[in-house]
Write a protein that binds this DNA or RNA. Structure first.
Lengths: 210, 210
DNA sequence: TTACTTTTGTGATAATATTCACAATATATA
DNA sequence: TATATATTGTGAATATTATCACAAAAGTAA
């Protein structure tokens, strides 16, 4: 079985498209339909599925419900995923209440900061002092954390998370953080995303000009 | 010259690392140092540079200032980039004031929404009614827009943006939007990012268990 | 100046990812 | 039931991307 990051990303996207197709009343779909929805080829879809031994019916396509369930199992979404956020600035607060997470069985259970003005011990999703992170992580068996602190404190926060036993980090601080054998770090860099878009828009405009 | 999205992403990352290295007092760097900072191989760095005819000195490495300037030129960052945001929810507001953009010569010049309660005509970064978008885009020569509306209205918003003449869209709505020859659409899907992390954390935990 | 060392720049090579193309087969139709 | 048709599943072929490895150049030291 040969997996890679892009392939897993596509699985997520297939699933998201499947929910949509389901809500439109579809019960079965073909690799063609999914391919359209996610902008890949149909053989890509089938190849991805074959990697995970997902099979459909020749001529009958795939049953959406089964497909969603299988993909969820592969993605490890059988149980509720508890996640913490470190850094309660504007972006952190936005992600704290991001509706897309809850919908996907992902629950932000607490946030942490160093600014006492931000602490909210009694809220449904509390904001706690950063020094309480290790205890909280251990007590609640948290594996995943989101970093939304400034670049300058990101490395420091990672160390704290690592020693608290966090296994996965989604980092929004605009600095490339390094994982290790015990902890996977994925970086989402908003500037980089926007710069990338700007580049391709410029290319587009230039080639159109010709 | 053979470019691709990942290569451009890396250019952005190199630049960001270069700023950091510069602030630490470095004046010149080697492909090795950059490779470390961005977690790629040094030949990857040199290959990326050679694609864009960026050259250094054998044995002397690259001058940081020149490198930053060249990368900025490639990325089309010679002039201030004016960007609009559509959708002033929590995420939209967070991005409106995201400090990383301004630092990179990217300026959010206005935001748009359909909720009259959110309108702020007199702020430095105004929040305007969505129907004013086309006029605003034309008058201010806006090329780039960020979508932070719910998935259900994203497609509709894209149509408006396309007909207003927007050339590039960074879409945060959790639905894959399709660009065309006149408009590049890049999708950033936060659920997908988090699901991806969850998958790899599970893999990590399983393989560790062995 | 000469020998030695370090680092670039890049063609050749290897690894990875995607698409092609078609046999196998399930369903629909007559 | 027999025939036609649509769709999967996958090995082979292709395309893309990254790494290797080393000659050439530039700095350093003697």
């Amino acid at each position: 079985m040969k997996t890679n990051k892009l392939c897993i990303m596509r699985l997520s996207k297939y699933k998201s498209a499947l929910y949509r197709l389901k809500s439109l009343g579809f019960v079965r779909i073909f690799s063609d339909n999914l391919a359209d929805a996610v902008e890949v080829t149909s053989s890509q879809v089938r190849k991805d599925f074959s990697i995970f031994d997902i099979s459909g019916n020749k001529r009958g396509g795939y049953k959406i419900d089964e497909l969603i369930e299988k993909i969820n199992t592969i993605l490890g979404k059988d149980e509720l995923q508890k996640v913490v956020i470190i850094g309660v600035g504007k972006l952190g607060s936005a992600l704290m209440h991001y509706p897309g997470f809850e919908k996907e069985g992902i629950k932000i259970v607490a946030a942490f900061d160093i600014d006492a003005l931000k602490f909210k011990h009694k809220e449904k999703t509390p904001v706690l002092p950063l020094e309480e992170l290790p205890e909280f992580v251990r007590k609640n068996n948290i594996k995943i954390g989101i970093i939304t602190v400034p670049a300058t404190s990101a490395q420091q926060v990672v160390e704290i998370m690592l020693s608290a036993g966090i296994k996965g980090v989604l980092n929004f601080a605009p600095i490339q953080l390094r994982g290790n054998d015990d902890c996977q770090i994925n970086n989402v860099n908003l500037e980089v995303e926007l710069e990338n878009l700007i580049y391709f828009v410029n290319v587009l405009i230039k080639t159109k000009g010709k």
